[in-house]
Write a protein that binds this DNA or RNA. Structure first.
Ligand SMILES: Nc1nc2c(ncn2[C@H]2C[C@H](O)[C@@H](COP(=O)(O)OP(=O)(O)OP(=O)(O)O)O2)c(=O)[nH]1
Ligand SMILES: [Mg+2]
Ligand SMILES: [Mg+2]
Ligand SMILES: [Zn+2]
Length: 579
DNA sequence: GCCGTTTTCGGCCCGACTGTTTTCAGTCG
């Protein structure tokens, strides 16, 4: 029997919240379900394991007696009576209706009760026939907005995007807005500033006394397909590629509070505002207002605001309500690391397999970034689609790397390989070949849909192989569609901690693997990490910032990341021979 | 439903934009 994962539990609690909302339940109860769901989704250790070892699930924030009882029932029986009763009362398909932009719980309820609509298709048909406008507080315009929302959903333009799509577009927008004379300051906010692994929309904050002029430029940006809304201080657009963007404008004097607000996360904001309340203030994006006399306090910087509330400035990537507010109060925020702390990488490709640049070009690009070392790890022989190297070609490549090393003496090069972990757990080169390599990185690329036991056995075999120094992209997820394999990550972490095998934080925006949540859990388990761009071309080294952000979001410090070590120490620690 | 540097009961963040609302509800940030 397999237990529900944290993700599945969180989804269930969110679905309960949605149906309760349509039912018209107490909004605070609904918030409680959503809050529990979020905390559980962000918990690095599986609740099923905690439950099995007899831990009290109420230790999790947001989980009290009622939800703990439900989890207990779920783990014991695989069912939840409360959910079964609820779905008997409120059709589950209404949750899809709730997904339609512009359709909230109130409208979902009236459409269901007044018109018997319970599906997206039904709502669409009713809207096309002009039936929705007969409902209270409904009219032609609202009906049209709903139809547009359904079409956007059908074109799959309402999902989430990875950083590789969001980041470049955001830089372009930022450059245009930053050049305007009316703009005093402009910054990305929201999940992009926090560097979440996926981005729902782009958020921009501009400090200006002329918001209309700035928003005018914003809606005329080249790739804007549609203006979704535009008021005095805020405008939303959708770009041609489906990404949405919000621009919020505030007077320059409000910058500190506004940036804090618009950076989020939502649950972080709620907690900060509750903290302000307890201290006798009310906080919004404009000011911190003293309740007793209505005196407003304005802040130029976020740091000044956090300090006023008795907190250290919290880096945006930590603002997820994972305990960062408590840590900021007690001076226990993680030290973190920056891109400049990374001294080299041990996982990259060249034209020898599926890379776009030669070994020399990769070496020179790494050197130009200030790297002290680089391991070339082309694919191993069984990965035919990626032009994996035969043993013979591996030998030839070794001579090529030596030749490049002679031409590019400023950076230490080693020959490694990204070696397939085959379906039976064996590696793709024989031991003597592995022994001849300076650095072996192991990857599970194939058979990621195998069952938990098989997959975990493969990962453990790789970690325990004495030649393997790194397990690359450990979960195998691909953003934004493919979830990782069903590995027992707790077993993976324990094995890696025991053997000292490094777990990768793959910085590719398609992967970010380990994900932030698991980085945090891995660190707790004593695992050492390493951040690699898995560069397939020189420009991929720019992705390092995403990997570093993922480490930071997982509360890492430099000492837990092996490639923050300078060359000599790295060599010593990795047992690399001096040639 | 959860929770406690005033509380085990009584609170629970706060504001922008839209539409048909003639005084504000709903949705979203
Ligand atoms: N105080 C408060 N702030 C909010 C609320 N909803 C959103 N915000 C703030 C914090 C968010 O990070 C910011 C931008 O909102 P978004 O909906 O774009 O969320 P965010 O960018 O965090 O995630 P996303 O990737 O876009 O889904 O606005 C809210 O209900 N209350
Ligand atoms: Mg956003
Ligand atoms: Mg937004
Ligand atoms: Zn690779």
């Amino acid at each position: 029997m397999s237990y529900p994962t944290n993700r599945q539990i969180a989804d269930l609690l969110n679905r309960i919240a949605g149906l309760l909302e349509i039912k018209g339940e107490n909004p605070f109860k609904i918030r409680a379900y959503r809050r529990a769901a979020e905390q559980i989704a962000h918990h690095g250790q599986e609740l099923a394991e905690l439950w099995q070892s007899g831990d009290d699930l109420r230790r999790l924030e947001g989980v009290g007696q009622a939800i703990a009882d439900k989890l207990d029932e779920l783990f014991r029986t695989g069912r939840l009576e409360f959910w079964e009763r609820l779905t008997a009362e409120v059709p589950e398909s209404l949750l899809e209706v709730l997904e339609i932009p512009e359709v909230g719980p109130a409208l979902a309820r009236t459409m269901w009760q007044e018109l018997g609509l319970t599906t997206v298709a039904g709502v669409q048909a009713a809207a096309e026939q002009g039936k929705l406008r007969t409902l209270p507080r409904m009219g032609k315009k609202k009906e049209a907005r709903i139809l547009a929302g359904i079409r956007a959903m059908a074109r799959r333009q309402t999902g989430r995007f990875h950083l590789g799509q969001a980041w470049p577009l955001a830089r372009q927008v930022l450059a245009v807005l930053g050049d305007l004379p009316q703009v005093v300051r402009v910054e990305t906010a929201g999940s992009l500033r926090r560097m979440r692994d996926t981005i729902g929309d782009l958020d921009f904050l501009a400090a200006t006394d002329h918001p209309a002029a700035v928003m005018e430029v914003f809606v005329r940006l080249p790739d804007v397909a549609e203006v979704l809304g535009s008021g005095e201080t805020k405008t939303s657009v959708r770009f041609k590629n489906g990404l949405q963007a919000d621009l919020r404008c505030v007077p320059p004097a409000r910058w500190g509070t506004a940036l804090q607000y618009f950076t989020g996360s939502k649950s972080h904001n709620v907690k900060i505002r509750e903290l302000a309340q307890r201290q006798g203030y009310s906080l919004n994006e404009y000011a911190l207002t003293r309740e007793q006399d209505g005196k407003p306090f304005l802040f130029d910087t976020e740091a000044a605001l956090y300090e006023f509330l008795g907190l250290a400035w919290i880096p945006p990537h930590l603002r997820e309500d994972w305990g960062e507010i408590e840590a900021a109060r007690s001076g226990a925020l993680p030290a973190g690391l920056s891109v400049a702390d990374i001294r080299g990488e041990v996982h990259c490709h060249s034209t020898w397999s599926d890379g776009r640049n030669t070994i020399e070009e990769m070496a020179r690009a790494a050197l130009a970034r200030g790297y002290e070392y680089l391991v070339i790890t082309d694919h191993s022989r069984s990965l035919g689609v990626a032009n994996g190297l035969s043993v013979e070609r591996l030998r030839q490549q070794s001579r090529e790397i030596e030749a490049v090393q002679a031409r590019v003496p400023g950076i230490r090069l080693w020959q490694g390989a990204e070696v397939e972990v085959k379906a039976d757990g064996s590696l793709d080169y024989p031991d003597d070949v592995l022994a001849g390599l300076d650095f072996v990185v192991a990857s599970v690329h194939t058979g990621l849909r195998q069952d938990r036991e098989t997959l975990t056995r493969r990962a453990l075999a790789a970690i325990q192989n004495p030649h393997v120094k790194v397990l690359a992209h450990p979960t195998g997820r691909l953003l934004t569609d493919r979830p990782g394999g069903d590995f027992d990550m707790e077993a993976v972490f324990q094995a890696a901690a025991r053997t000292g095998t490094l777990l990768e934080i793959n910085a590719s925006p398609y992967r970010l693997d380990l994900p932030d949540v698991l980085v945090r859990r891995a660190i707790a388990a004593g695992v050492k990490l390493i951040i690699n761009c898995d560069a397939h071309g020189v420009e991929d080294f720019d992705n390092l910032q995403f990997g570093v952000a993922t480490a930071n979001r997982g509360w890492a410090a430099a000492e837990q990341v092996a490639n923050t070590l300078p060359l000599a120490e790295f060599e010593a620690q990795m047992g690399l021979v001096q040639k």
